[in-house]
Nucleic acid binder design. Structure first.
Length: 417
DNA sequence: AATCCACAGGAAGTCTCGGTTA
DNA sequence: TAACCGAGACTTCCTGTGGATT
C-alpha cells in the first residue's frame, strides 16, 4: 500500500469500476439459498422421510407432525423448506390449496410474535379481507384471525418452526397442534414441522403437546468430510473459473468436519476466504486464505454471541479462558471457575455473584452455545454428576473478542495460581 | 456399614424497577 | 402522590445424591 486509498495504485473510481475477480455467483454460498434437488448432498434419506411424513398434505389430508433434530448446519431447515416448497407446487398443480409458513423462532421468540408472523405469511388480504396489524391486538385475536385465514384460503397448511427451542413457552405448539381437534378450524388441517438443534428440547415440553407432536421424529446426522466436500464442489460456480486452488475445498471441508460437520461453517469459510483474497487483490484463493477465514469466522461468530451479553457473563467466560490458558486441563468445575471469577470481578470493581447464581449463568451460556459442558459421574463427588465447563473456542479468539470491551483491556493474567 | 463431602438445583425470601391504580 | 403489583435477578438455605473416607 503506497497511498491511503487502501486500494494500491488504483484510484477510487477505478476501484468502484473494477470487476470482481473472485466471485461469479456469490449467492450460491448463502446458506439460505435453496439449491435444486440434485444439489442437496447426502440428505436423500432425510428428504424422503420428511416427504413421507407430510405426504398426506398434497391431497389435502392431515399431514403428520414432524420433529427434526440435528446440529447447526446439518441441513434441517434446507430439507424442510425444500420439501414443503416442492410439496406445495405439486399440490397446487393438483388443485389442493396448500399453504406453507416458515417461522424463525430466534426472530419471533414470543408466542404472539410467532402467531403474527404465521398469520402474515399465510394471509392474502385481497381474498380474505382480513388484516393482520403488526402490533396492537391481543394474542387471542391474532389466533382468531389466523383460524379465519386458514379456513378461508387453505385445505392444508404446513408450518415450519425453526429453532423452536428458542421459543418462549409452548402454548403456540399446543394451539397449532390442536387447532383441528378443538374445532377452531373446520376446512383446513394444520401440520407442524418443528426444528430444533437440541435433542433435550423434548424434555422441556409437557406431555400433552408431546403426544400430539411426536408422530414423526428424525435426527439429522452431521455431514462427514466427504459430503461437505461435495456440497462445496456443487457450489463451486459461485467462484469464477480457476480461482480456487485445488486444496481450498478439501481444506475447508476438513476444518468444518472437525467442527461437528457444520455445512454453514464450511460455506462461511469458503466465502470469507474469497473475500479475503479479493481484499488482497489476489486473483486466486489459496490455502492461506482459508486459514485466515477460519480465524475470522470464529471471531465473528463468537463476537456475535457475546455481544450484548451482560458484563457478568463476560467475566465468567473470561475466568474460564484464563483457567484454560494457564492450566493443562480444559474442563473446570463450577467452584474453580467461581474462584477465578470472584478475583476478576474484584479487580474490575464490580459485584460478584454467588456461586449458585453463577452456575445458573454458566448453564445459560451452555444453552447459548457460548460454552460447552460435560457431566462427569463420580470422582467429582457431586450429586452423582459434576458439571465441567469448557470453552468452545480458542482462548486467543475469546480474548480478542473480549478486548473490544475496554474493561478487559490490559488485564493481567496473574490471577490464576 | 456408617459417615462425610461437596455439588446441582429446588424453594423461598429480598430487592429493585417499571408500570398501574386509588 | 402514595400505595400497590408483578417480574426478574439475586441471595440464602436446604435436600438429595453417590463416591470417598473412616
Amino acid at each position: 500500500m503506497d497511498d491511503d486509498t487502501g486500494t494500491g495504485t488504483r484510484t477510487l473510481d477505478e476501484f468502484w469500476a473494477s470487476e470482481n475477480p473472485i466471485f461469479a455467483r456469490k449467492e450460491l454460498l448463502d446458506i439460505d439459498y435453496i439449491p435444486e434437488e440434485e444439489r442437496i448432498i447426502g440428505r436423500d434419506t432425510e428428504i424422503e422421510r420428511v416427504a413421507s411424513s407430510i405426504h398426506p398434505a398434497v391431497e389435502g389430508d392431515s399431514p403428520r407432525n414432524t420433529l427434526i433434530y440435528g446440529k447447526t448446519g446439518t441441513g434441517k431447515s434446507l430439507v424442510a423448506k425444500h420439501v414443503t416448497q416442492s410439496a406445495s407446487e405439486f399440490a397446487r398443480n393438483n388443485g389442493t390449496g396448500m399453504g406453507t409458513a416458515y417461522i424463525d423462532c430466534t426472530q419471533s421468540s414470543t408466542e404472539t410474535r410467532a402467531v403474527i408472523t404465521i398469520a402474515r405469511e399465510l394471509n392474502d388480504p385481497e381474498k380474505t379481507g382480513i388484516t393482520i396489524p403488526v402490533t396492537g391486538l391481543s394474542t387471542d385475536e391474532y389466533y382468531h384471525r389466523l383460524w379465519s385465514i386458514l379456513d378461508a384460503l387453505y385445505d392444508v397448511v404446513i408450518i415450519i418452526l425453526d429453532e423452536i427451542d428458542k421459543l418462549q413457552g409452548s402454548e403456540i405448539l399446543m394451539q397449532l397442534s390442536r387447532a383441528g381437534e378443538a374445532g377452531k378450524v373446520n376446512e383446513c388441517s394444520v401440520g407442524i414441522i418443528a426444528i430444533s438443534n437440541k435433542i433435550s428440547f423434548k424434555e422441556t415440553l409437557d406431555e400433552r403437546i408431546l403426544s400430539s407432536l411426536q408422530d414423526r421424529e428424525f435426527v439429522f446426522p452431521p455431514y462427514d468430510a466427504n459430503q461437505l466436500r461435495n456440497i462445496m464442489y456443487n457450489r463451486e460456480d459461485a467462484f469464477k473459473e480457476g480461482v480456487l486452488t485445488e486444496d481450498v475445498i478439501p481444506l475447508s471441508a476438513a476444518i468444518a468436519a472437525q467442527e461437528h460437520g457444520d455445512a454453514r461453517k464450511a460455506l462461511d469459510i469458503l466465502r470469507n476466504a474469497g473475500e479475503i483474497a479479493r481484499d488482497q487483490q489476489m486473483e486466486i484463493v489459496t490455502k492461506n486464505h482459508v486459514e485466515d477465514a477460519r480465524k475470522r469466522a470464529d471471531i465473528d461468530r463468537f463476537a456475535q454471541l457475546l455481544d450484548g451479553q451482560p458484563t457478568q457473563t463476560k467475566v465468567c467466560v473470561y475466568a474460564l479462558t484464563l483457567l484454560t490458558e494457564q492450566s493443562s486441563d480444559d474442563e473446570f468445575s463450577t467452584r474453580e471457575i467461581h474462584e477465578v471469577y470472584s478475583k476478576i470481578a474484584a479487580e474490575l470493581g464490580i459485584d460478584s455473584l454467588s456461586q449458585r447464581r453463577m452456575s445458573d449463568r454458566l448453564n445459560e451460556q451452555v444453552f447459548l452455545d457460548i460454552l460447552g459442558r460435560t457431566d462427569r459421574v463420580g470422582r467429582g463427588r457431586g450429586k452423582g454428576v459434576t458439571h465441567l465447563y469448557y470453552l468452545l473456542e480458542d482462548p486467543d479468539v475469546i480474548k480478542s473478542v473480549l478486548a473490544d470491551d475496554s474493561r478487559f483491556n490490559n488485564f493481567s493474567d496473574y490471577l490464576v495460581t
